[in-house]
Computed example of a mutant assay.
Amino acid sequence: MLLWINGPFGGGKTQTAHEIRRRLPGSVLCDPEHPGFGLRRMLPPELRGDFQDLTSWRQGVVEVLDLTLGRHDGVVIAPMTVTDPRYFAETVGRLRELGHDVRHFTLLAERETVLARLRGRGFGWLLRYVAGKDAPLRRESWAVEQLDHCLERLREPEFAEHLWTDRTTVARTADRIAVLAGLTLTPNRDGLVRGWLRRAGTSARHIRFD
């Protein structure tokens, strides 16, 4: 089974994917962003754009996930924002055509909720402490520019199943996905501090500088 976790940039996909992997024995996380940024770095700066526009990315993601799903016994988790219906068909749709059990979930939240999460990504909490809670999101400017488009497109029925996350935790979102997919997670035994440290570590490991 493949769990494809969609949602706007800063919507909690990566945190939720890592939470599921942590609490679902035998599961693995395959992040489609990795080949995307690799392909992007191969291009000279003036040619760099959205790596999802590259056919090689879409085909490569399908090839790698098809291989993993065919040879790995456990659940595979892929956190990735996809809002273009054509690209969705060429990735999620294509994997379904190949016979894989793909469960797709879109994490949604109100605009202000996502902006608050973007401010807290990486070392954003430190910037807020130094420059104030309304400091501009310079490093996340691209994500902010895409936010309204993402929220509008991802509300469409084709991107269901929708899960609203404004008033819930990462652990509870993971629990909801597991129930909907017919999976059983191990109990979440993290306290407030340990949970925060775990999420901060995940966020720091996924800081992008290009």
Rank of each mutant, 00 (worst) to 15 (best):
A89K: 09
E90R: 12
T91V: 12
V92R: 04
V92Q: 11
V92K: 06
G93Q: 07
G93D: 01
R94Y: 07
R94N: 10
R94A: 09
R96I: 10
R96A: 11
E97I: 00
E97C: 01
E97K: 00
G99L: 01
G99A: 03
H100R: 02
H100Y: 07
V102D: 09
R103E: 09
H104L: 07
H104Q: 04
F105R: 01
T106P: 05
L107E: 03
L107Q: 03
L107R: 04
L108S: 05
L108Q: 07
L108R: 07
A109G: 06
A109Q: 05
E110G: 07
R111W: 10
R111D: 03
R111K: 13
R111M: 02
E112H: 10
E112M: 04
E112T: 08
T113K: 02
T113M: 05
T113Y: 04
V114Q: 02
V114I: 08
L115I: 12
L115H: 07
L115D: 03
A116P: 11
A116T: 15
R117Q: 14
L118A: 02
L118H: 10
R119W: 09
G120M: 08
G120Q: 15
G120P: 00
G120F: 08
R121K: 10
R121S: 04
R121P: 01
G122V: 07
G122T: 08
G124L: 05
W125M: 00
W125V: 01
W125R: 14
L127F: 09
L127C: 00
R128W: 11
R128P: 06
R128S: 13
Y129V: 15
V130R: 13
V130N: 08
V130D: 09
A131I: 11
A131T: 11
G132N: 08
G132T: 13
K133W: 15
A135Q: 14
A135R: 15
A135C: 15
A135L: 04
P136L: 10
P136Y: 14
L137F: 07
R139H: 14
R139E: 11
R139K: 10
E140R: 05
E140N: 08
E140P: 00
E140L: 01
S141V: 08
W142N: 07
W142F: 13
A143R: 12
A143K: 13
A143V: 08
V144N: 00
E145W: 14
Q146Y: 14
D148K: 02
D148R: 00
D148W: 08
L151Q: 04
L151S: 00
E152K: 10
E152N: 05
L154F: 12
R155H: 09
E156Q: 10
P157D: 13
P157G: 08
E158Q: 12
F159E: 12
F159M: 07
F159I: 13
A160R: 06
E161D: 11
E161H: 11
H162V: 09
H162R: 02
W164P: 03
T165F: 07
T165C: 07
D166R: 03
R167E: 15
R167T: 13
T168Y: 03
T168K: 04
T168R: 06
T168P: 00
T168C: 02
T169F: 02
T169W: 01
V170I: 13
V170L: 05
V170G: 03
A171D: 04
